[in-house]
Nucleic acid binder design. Structure first.
Lengths: 182, 182
DNA sequence: TCAATTAAGCAACATATGTCGTATAGTCGT
DNA sequence: ACGACTATACGACATATGTTGCTTAATTGA
């Protein structure tokens, strides 16, 4: 299967649209491959040529959202003062907060959060390997550091979106930043 | 369904044993409810009286392992020196490392890691609310702090067990501790 | 000990899953 | 424009899922 084939790209695009469409209506766990295939007007067997299961499809459909989070995280200046969260981080939490209605289920789905965490770890690893690291941790391997922070970020977001969500996004961003910058 | 009924307890115990048995042979994702039911010598329909899906069953079957991790994490003295990880933390990573063959798949399964993270967050929240908190973060809500650290721990462990696992457990524990105690 | 309660067994169902082989039709290089 | 290639459609299959109604048997309380 050549993923660059225009036919394959079209099919994937239709599957993404169908899944996001369905996810906006019901919870992710109840969405079946058959349904997605039907709504996308794609043969069910064809779906398996692209994705092994719904969650992988969902993760791919959300690639944009995931990339957005990863990008925002990677953009944060590491030397911002402790009592003032950098703008990209605040924007990230605001983004999640605002888009919660649309894809809060992303963070509620274990598989999607796992995927997000992996993405973040990769992104931060690359950034850390490039030399841009929080100071004072030169005695820790970059990938462990990246895994640590990715886990922490995803953990805080997941805890927040699955909870009552009383804390305002900006406040949560500040708390996270304070934990990040002791 | 009364979970305290001795018949129910027996059934659950058999399901747990069967699942752990199967998980030791193959990866979790490929294990079906039908199989578990057959090996446990329990009617398939009965399984649904106890668990909605395999992952929930797995999470319950692993309650002991999860509790062990949560307990170890909660036991760590928070004032240990930065260049020497506390014994419970080292033991925890060694435990995971040693038991990897048996239930490394726990950390490879998104749903199980999510469950583990939730457990840890709860455990740490309770502990932090009780006053025992890492110093210097009084301006951060305890539950956010707990979510942050739980995510970080699970993130590092998941990154480690799903990777080549070259770093020795003790070294990883030290790295984690250094990140924890700046 | 006996009767009420209820977990588990059992059979059957509609639907979903994953995987075939084959046919159709869209894509690309010449 | 034509032929090789291949993604998709289609139908069919064995199996898995989730649920239901009914029966059997274990537990509990009087």
């Amino acid at each position: 299967m050549n993923p660059d084939d225009p036919r394959a790209q079209r099919t994937r695009a239709r599957l993404h649209a169908a899944l996001l469409d369905l996810a906006a209506e019901r919870e992710l766990g109840s969405i079946t491959i058959s349904e997605v295939a039907k709504r996308a007007e794609v043969n069910r067997a064809t779906v398996y040529l692209h994705y092994p299961d719904v969650d992988t499809l969902a993760a791919d459909a959300l690639e944009d959202a995931v990339a957005e989070v990863a990008r925002a995280a990677a953009l944060c200046p590491l030397d911002a003062p402790r009592d003032r969260a950098p703008e990209p981080l605040t924007a990230l939490f605001a983004h999640v907060s605002a888009g919660a209605a649309r894809y809060a289920w992303l963070l509620g789905s274990p598989r999607c959060t796992a995927r997000l965490r992996e993405r973040l770890t990769g992104e931060l690893s690359a950034r850390f390997a490039g030399g841009a690291r929080p100071p004072g941790f030169d005695d820790v391997p970059p990938d462990v550091h990246a895994a640590y922070l990715s886990g922490a970020l995803v953990g805080v977001i997941a805890h927040w979106v699955t909870g009552p969500r009383t804390t305002p996004a900006a406040e949560l961003a500040l708390s996270f930043w304070r934990l990040f910058r002791p």
